[in-house]
Design a protein around this nucleic acid. Structure first.
Lengths: 207, 207
DNA sequence: CAACATACAAACATCGCTGTATGTTAATTC
DNA sequence: GAATTAACATACAGCGATGTTTGTATGTTG
């Protein structure tokens, strides 16, 4: 019973959805391919037709997430007198709001956070690490620009400011995702970002 | 060839050390009990004598970590005019320094961070969550005290201050442990804590 | 110094799961 | 419309790991 191309894509999508559900509920390590197949309404044959193995399935799950448009942000920051803090705070807020509303992203990121990154999934976590590195460099550059504009106060350096921002957002997201989403990440995150950026622009102590 | 009690304890310790090494290198999910046994210089029989199963072994690994004396800290904070910020900043700094020097703690926490928390290891992560909850309550109480002393400035509330501190420390440790320890956690953490506590005591904006 | 318990080693049972190979049917292709 | 191939289902081989059971030699206890 060979399917049409459109039907095949539909099947692939069903498998991804099933994998998202099953991996999220049972954990990547302890869910079998047949668990996924059952939920998707197919057999393991279909899964192995569309995906090489479980690691590949997880990778494609990760790839199915639309990534934020970084070039757009970079362009916003290009202007000579760009409001760096305003842009960064807004981007952070938007990211948290997107996470709060996109349940697929929540589940997939939970899966990635809880999955054993050594061994077969090393490739995925390496990709994430590379992305993180790029983000850090972009952040540092942005804060350096703010410093050049004389807007970075306190004892902040571009590096320390970028690191702090990263730690807060990562801590916030990890806690929310791994800990049962027991608080309103959008509003609490918004508050936290506001306070954090307020400290960035605090006047340098004249000691 | 039955061993004496002291020798048995020694064997148990060897198994724990081997498990720490093997689980750290291969990941909990993909290391077999025989891998552990081989490194420990025993057979799986010895492991199953001392531990019920792999989850129990991981749990005992976690239990082997000496926990910071929380009562001591609580007592320090009891005094009417206690320097809350000073104590908390010092405690945080000491924690980071301890983590930076104790390689066992580094490996075991790495194992816990990367291990799949669903399924068989749910008990362990629940215990961690409970501990985290206690910490949060203690932190909130401490910041509430500081607020009562009129020392909590800005727009901070006890809850937001405690959350922020937690997120920063968690983000810091996670990044350092999972990311190859690519920076000096003691010194960078010390700086971050100093900046963070400085913002806590910043004067309230009179808007 | 029996008698028993302890601290393992060695062998066993078995089972779930993975990957692959083969079979089948229907969509494409030329 | 014959040939090909895509899209699966089904069947198979086989490992690797787990938990248990049995064996055994030696501490330990009364």
């Amino acid at each position: 019973m060979r399917r049409t191309k459109a039907e095949a894509k539909e099947t692939r999508q069903q498998i991804l959805l099933a994998a998202e559900k099953v991996f999220y509920e049972k954990g990547v390590a302890h869910a079998s391919m047949e668990d996924v197949a059952r939920v998707a309404g197919v057999t393991r044959g279909a899964i192995y037709w569309h995906f090489a193995n479980r690691a590949d399935l997880v990778l494609e799950l990760y790839n199915s997430l639309p990534m934020p448009q970084e070039e757009l942000i970079a362009r916003e920051l290009e202007a000579e007198n760009a409001d760096v803090f305003g842009v960064l705070e807004r981007v952070g807020r938007e990211w948290l709001e997107m996470l709060a509303t996109d349940e697929h992203r929540q589940r997939i990121l939970s899966i990635l956070l809880r999955c054993d990154t050594s061994g077969e999934f090393a490739a995925i976590s390496e990709r994430q690490n590379d992305l993180d590195d790029e983000h850090m460099q972009a952040l540092e550059a942005a804060f350096a620009k703010a410093e050049g504009q004389g807007k970075l106060g306190g004892t902040w350096t571009p590096r320390s400011a970028a690191s702090m921002l990263r730690w807060v957002i990562k801590g916030l997201c990890s806690e929310w995702l791994l800990f049962g989403r027991r608080f309103d990440i959008a509003s609490e995150g918004k508050e936290a970002l506001r306070r954090l950026f307020a400290t960035y622009s605090a006047p340098t102590p004249s000691t």
